[in-house]
Simulated scan of single mutants.
Amino acid sequence: MPHAQTPDHSGAAITMQKVQPFGENDLVLTTTATDLDGRIADRHSAYHDNLSPPLIWTQVEGAAAYAIIVEDPDAPRDQPFVHWLIWNIPGEATSLPEGLPNDASLGLIGGATQGTNDSGTVGYFGPRPPVGHGVHHYHFQIFALAERLPFDARTPLADLVNALKGDALASDDLIVTYEAAGA
């Protein structure tokens, strides 16, 4: 039986490993976009329709907003590849629908802001691991925030992470997988 290829990791920490929430609340993030093995559906891949997946989470008492960061630490580069930054999702929200537009400001989501991903575009950029690089793991990290964040779409990940360090009430990490078809 052939040995499954596994990608080299960037070696750098993902956001979840840098932020310690100060609250005692539980937060659980789920999606209906994966199969039983945790593989995200093709329509959410940048090889296909590049639709952001539907996400559902438990509400955290006292949360003024939520932030979601999606990173791929299996990317063949020094830092994890950032696939999605979205913050200021209203505190009363418990889900995001599939296929959000790639706009910096999302009025339909209470004025949530989407940042620039590592492909250089605003909004969601789905999994697109190199062909033959093996299975990649995509970390959908959610943070419940005590306050809304004053950032615009050009805010770098480092600034967002620093704000999360002082503002996160709770967090969760949903890991999904994807592998490029082909040899």
Rank of each mutant, 00 (worst) to 15 (best):
Arg148Ile: 12
Met16Gln: 11
Ala144Thr: 05
Leu149Gln: 05
Asp49Trp: 13
Asn50Phe: 11
Leu96Ile: 02
Leu164Tyr: 12
Thr31Asn: 05
Pro156Arg: 09
Trp84Met: 03
Ala144Gly: 03
His3Lys: 10
Thr32Ala: 10
Val176Glu: 11
Val161Cys: 03
Asp42Phe: 11
Asn50Pro: 00
Thr94Ser: 13
Tyr124Ser: 11
Ala146Gln: 14
Gly38Ala: 10
Ala93Met: 15
Asp74Phe: 09
Gly120Cys: 11
Pro2Ala: 12
Asp72Tyr: 01
Trp57Ile: 04
Asn102Cys: 08
His48Met: 12
Leu108Lys: 09
Val176Cys: 08
Ala163Asn: 10
Ile40Glu: 03
Pro73Val: 03
Asn25Lys: 06
Ala67Gly: 03
Glu24Trp: 01
Asp49Cys: 14
Glu71His: 08
Pro53Trp: 05
Thr6Asn: 13
Thr31Leu: 11
Ala183Asp: 15
Gly91Cys: 10
Val161Phe: 08
Arg43Tyr: 14
Pro54Ala: 15
Val19Gln: 08
Asp173Arg: 00
Tyr124Met: 08
Ala183Asn: 09
Arg154Glu: 04
Trp84His: 09
Val70His: 13
Asn117Leu: 08
Glu61Asn: 14
Thr15Phe: 06
Thr30Tyr: 10
Ile14Met: 02
Leu169Asp: 01
Asp8Arg: 04
Glu179Asn: 03
Ala183Lys: 14
Asp49Tyr: 09
Lys18Asn: 13
Thr32His: 12
His83Pro: 07
His133Ala: 13
Glu92Leu: 09
Pro2Gln: 13
Ser45Asp: 02
His3Ala: 02
Asp74Asn: 10
Tyr178Ala: 02
Glu147Asn: 14
His83Trp: 08
Ile56Cys: 15
Pro150His: 03
Thr94Gln: 12
Thr6Ile: 14
Phe151Asn: 09
Thr34Pro: 04
Phe22Trp: 00
Thr116Trp: 09
Asn162Glu: 13
His44Asp: 00
Leu27Cys: 05
Ala67Asn: 05
Ser119Met: 04
Thr6Arg: 15
Pro53Gly: 06
Pro54Glu: 12
Ala75Val: 11
Asn162Trp: 01
Pro129Met: 09
Gly132Leu: 12
Ala63Leu: 09
Ser10Thr: 12
Leu149Tyr: 00
Gly91Gln: 03
Pro2Glu: 12
Gly99Lys: 10
Ile69Ser: 01
Pro76Phe: 08
Tyr138Cys: 04
Ala180Val: 04
Leu55His: 07
Leu149Met: 06
His44Lys: 07
Ala181Tyr: 07
Leu36Ser: 15
Met1Glu: 14
Asp118Pro: 06
Ala170Gln: 05
Gly182Ile: 13
Met16Arg: 10
Ala181Ile: 03
Arg39Phe: 11
